[in-house]
């Protein structure tokens, strides 16, 4: 898997290189800023890219803009954005660009090497990798209908929203794929969502639900029980 990295901090980029090489990836280029990143992407056509949100010159949200720009130019280019903090807003902007292959993770997650490489592969394959904190923000906001789920169902919902497929959810929660399937059926029924096949579309459906208009006590429960 060929990777292009946009990261201006040498400590972090060498760390990432080390980690990715051990995981069997090939780091084609490391760019220190947004224009450099765009040039490298055009030149190397990587399988996946890793972009830090803050890049020179102003160290604000250049990374997000560079990622969106790159995806406009090369539709479907897989992008995994790394940040020291997560904002639902940024996640929404990344997801709004068409096509799959989007990831948004806290830098902390890199240290869980297996999960990080999993997420990177998922993104490279056109899937989604959303940070648990983003999902937590969304779930917290969604309120009542989500509160009606069992704790286990909430865990499954969270992993689903992060972009895990059924097998990954099963291995993370140490349950059978069959049990996962049953939980997902219950969740979709309780939330009143149409069952979608797994993959990016399912993630989008779940995220759209969580991100959607806030459901008040009365209206929300009525809508769910109506189905």
């Amino acid at each position: 898997m060929r990777v292009v990295i946009a990261e201006d901090n040498v400590l972090l980029s060498t760390g990432l290189e080390l980690l990715l090489r051990r995981a069997g990836c090939h780091v084609a280029a490391v760019a220190g800023d947004a224009p450099g990143f765009l040039t490298a992407v055009r030149e190397h056509r990587p399988d996946v890219t890793i972009v830090d949100v803050r890049l020179p010159p102003s160290f604000r949200d250049e990374g997000i803009r560079a990622a969106l720009e790159a995806r406009r130019e090369l539709p479907g280019l897989p992008v995994l954005v790394l940040s020291q903090y997560v904002e639902q807003q940024y996640a929404a902007e990344l997801l709004s660009s068409t096509g799959g292959g989007v990831g948004y993770l806290l830098k902390d997650r890199v240290s869980r090497v297996d999960e990080f490489v999993d997420a990177l592969r998922r993104v490279a394959a056109g899937g989604t990798a959303m940070d648990p904190e983003v999902i937590a923000q969304l779930v917290h906001r969604a309120g009542d209908p989500v509160a009606a789920l069992t704790p286990r169902e909430r865990e499954v919902l969270g992993l689903m929203a992060q972009g895990c497929d059924n097998n990954a959810i099963a291995s993370r929660l140490v349950i059978t794929a069959n049990a996962v399937h049953k939980h997902i059926g219950n969740i979709f029924a309780k939330l009143g969502l149409a069952v979608t096949d797994s993959g990016h579309r399912r993630v989008l459906a779940v995220l759209a639900y969580l991100n959607g208009p806030v459901r008040g006590t009365g209206a929300g429960s009525a809508g769910v029980s109506g189905r």
Partner: peptide, 21 residues
């Protein structure tokens, strides 16, 4: 950090999207 990245405008937009109401 969102304030540094996006200014008051963007940061407040982020805050209200997080709000449950």
């Amino acid at each position: 950090p969102i304030l540094a990245d996006r200014g008051l405008d963007g940061a407040l937009t982020a805050v209200i999207t997080r709000c449950g109401v």
